[in-house]
Design a protein around this nucleic acid. Structure first.
Lengths: 270, 270
DNA sequence: CGTAGCTTTGAAGATTTTCAACCTTAGTGG
DNA sequence: CCACTAAGGTTGAAAATCTTCAAAGCTACG
């Protein structure tokens, strides 16, 4: 818990290095947002207490999801965007011929649902990969608030733009990188995201299967499995199923050099 | 010219099938936006004349670009988003190791620069592929206006979201589709975009080289070339360098079935 | 403790890339 | 006007990468 609150600050200051310093203090934030990661929306824009309260009030807290529960499905009407509080969520889209593409994995603090704004329906499905808590931000209320708070509006534009960036980097990975580079980039990304959350960047548990990793990276399961084996043999990491221990972070990073920040993070609210 | 004005309506009505009908008439639009494709921003939201004027006033008209001119480069400070009026623009990002990835081709009416909002610097470069006219929308002024016009704000959120969708569909193409399906999807997309613009959907000139197509689709030039030859042999199309004549649209579409709307369009303003 | 699902491994096969050569076109300058 | 050149495009053959198929191992969960 505490860890999380601290992370808000870290995220926000990183995100906001060049803008105005936060005015709202951490107590207001906790009060307004609860455990939900709204740091990036609240802090960097000099909202007064009333505004923070208002933002806090529109947040819905939902009952936790279990593994396999859908947060939404393709074609569902769009009402809200979501922020992962704990656990993890996979979003995926499917084509007419049945092909499915994992579009992203969402760790705590990361946001999803932005792609549904355009058509007012969800174009991806989102499913909990483990027991997961999310908070829900009704988008119409967020828009109302944003039109009264220019800096909130700006933050929302930035979030959407950040998501575009993330996907452009992913296009580079899928379009130009070898299987080895893809998996390295993926692991490096996860590592960075866990670190940012205050967890170890060298040792963590994957919440997704080899199958899902392969799907995300445009590779066959077997290829992913072989790569884990090879990385292990090369002393890059130890991997026992879901558990990953990165042994040589520098070499991992050097394998990724190409993919600057690819996959490093989703649109985040904190 | 006239063609363009008419196309605004087509675009907007398509985009806005489920929302309120346009209030501003075409004369106001022409007056406010000139040749610039702002239909999607102006029309569907019931702006009054003053608002339309205001939106029109923030549009900058720049001198035309020549082939090879950069609209912006990676790392340039972000000030404006751009709409292609005529010609075509390629946007591409490069990784540390020098790999370049073409992120998109922008035809008239399509928008670019949205990915720069987040960090305030351009993360892609944009270069004219032929003689090209764009109009420029200073983003800070757009934000000002959006915070006073909730429906403009909403349109902007939709535009960003649409771009996210387009890229998610592209992820599916790069992650799951064969070379053949990729090229088919690309050509089908171009066809649809030309059609929408009032041009022939069966016969058009590519503004990009085989190299650029290959880069965009994650394929080697030679593969693209071979595919054109194969498509030709199969009676799918006739292709002489840049000139493409699609002979069997149905079969082309069936090859694409998978990639629902992939690459079909960029964020558009009209 | 048995079964289903995920993971690993090997071998064969397919697709795509790479390398090398040649062709075509558009533009340039004599 | 023609030849030359550079850039882009095409083609073939060899090589690499990745996928597919098949089978077996492991783990977790009921």
């Amino acid at each position: 818990m505490h860890n999380q609150e601290i992370t808000f600050f870290a995220d926000v200051s990183a995100m906001n290095a060049t803008s105005t310093p936060p005015i709202v203090n951490i107590d207001h934030l906790k009060q307004a947002c609860g455990n939900c990661s709204l740091g990036a929306l609240c802090l960097p824009m000099g909202l007064d207490d009333k505004d923070v309260d208002e933002l806090g009030r529109i947040v819905k807290r939902n009952r936790p999801l279990h593994r396999g529960d859908h947060l939404f499905r393709m074609g569902d009407p769009f009402h809200s965007i979501f922020v992962v509080k704990s656990g993890s969520v996979k979003s995926y889209s499917s084509a007419q011929d049945g092909d499915e593409q994992v579009v992203g994995f969402h760790l705590p603090g990361e946001m999803l649902g932005l792609d549904a704004i355009d058509r007012g329906i969800h174009t991806c499905a989102a499913i909990a990969m483990e027991t997961t808590a999310v908070c829900e931000l009704p988008f119409d209320r967020l828009e109302d608030l944003a039109s009264r708070l220019p800096s909130l509006q700006h933050q929302l534009f930035r979030l959407l733009s950040k998501e575009i960036n993330r996907e452009e980097e992913m296009l580079l990975v899928l379009g130009k990188k070898s299987a080895e580079e893809r998996l390295a980039a993926f692991l490096f990304s996860l590592s960075a995201r866990y670190k940012r959350r205050g967890y170890s960047d060298r040792e963590f548990n994957l919440s997704m299967s080899r199958q899902e990793i392969g799907n995300y990276l445009g590779l066959a399961v077997e290829t992913v499995s072989r790569l884990f084996t090879r990385f292990h043999e090369d002393g890059l990491l130890e991997a026992q199923r879901k558990h990953v221990h990165i042994l040589d972070m520098e070499r991992l990073e050097s394998m990724v050099s190409a993919c600057t920040g690819a996959m490093h993070q989703h649109a985040r609210m904190g």
